[in-house]
Amino acid sequence: MTQIHHEDVPQEEAAPERFRDRITARELHSSRAAASIVAAVLVAGLCLVLLLEALLKAIGQRYWLVDPRDAAAWVHQLPGNVPPLILGASGLLLLFVGLVFFLKAVLPGRLPRHRIPSRRGIVVADNEVIASSLARRARAAANVSREQVLVTVSRNLVEVQLRPTSGMPVDEALVQGVVEDELLRTRIEPVPEVRVHVSSSGVVGQ
Results as ranks from 00 to 15, higher is better:
I122P: 02
E17K: 12
R110W: 08
P83K: 05
V124R: 00
A73F: 02
I37T: 12
L78C: 04
I188N: 06
D171N: 15
H197V: 15
H6M: 13
V43A: 14
S145P: 03
P108G: 06
L184Q: 10
P190W: 08
L111K: 15
H6Q: 07
R185Y: 10
V198I: 14
S118Y: 05
M1S: 13
E182S: 09
R115N: 10
M168F: 04
M1C: 06
V178G: 01
S166K: 09
I188R: 05
E128M: 01
S36W: 09
L48I: 10
S199I: 06
V198Q: 12
M1A: 12
F101G: 05
A140D: 09
Q3P: 00
E159Y: 02
A105M: 11
E13V: 09
A15W: 12
R20K: 15
E13N: 10
D67Y: 02
G91Y: 03
R26Q: 12
E13K: 12
Q11R: 14
V129A: 11
R136C: 00
R155M: 06
R32V: 06
A140S: 05
V9C: 02
E193Q: 14
H76P: 01
R62V: 03
G91Q: 01
I59V: 15
P79Q: 11
I23T: 10
W74M: 08
V153D: 07
W64P: 02
P84G: 05
G109H: 06
L56V: 00
R187A: 14
G88P: 01
L52P: 03
H76A: 15
G91W: 07
E12W: 08
Q176W: 03
L103N: 02
P108A: 09
I122T: 11
V179S: 11
H5P: 01
I59G: 04
P164G: 10
P164E: 13
A135N: 00
L107Q: 09
L85C: 01
G109A: 09
R136Y: 04
H76F: 03
S133Q: 04
R62Y: 03
L50A: 15
G91D: 05
E147S: 12
L162P: 02
L50I: 09
V123A: 10
D21I: 02
P108Y: 07
W64D: 05
R139S: 07
S154L: 02
A73M: 05
F19K: 13
G88H: 07
L157T: 01
R26T: 13
I130N: 00
I86N: 05
P10A: 08
P16D: 05
A89K: 05
E53N: 06
E159W: 08
V82G: 11
L46P: 00
H6A: 11
M168G: 00
G177W: 01
S199G: 14
L78N: 03
W64Q: 07
L107N: 03
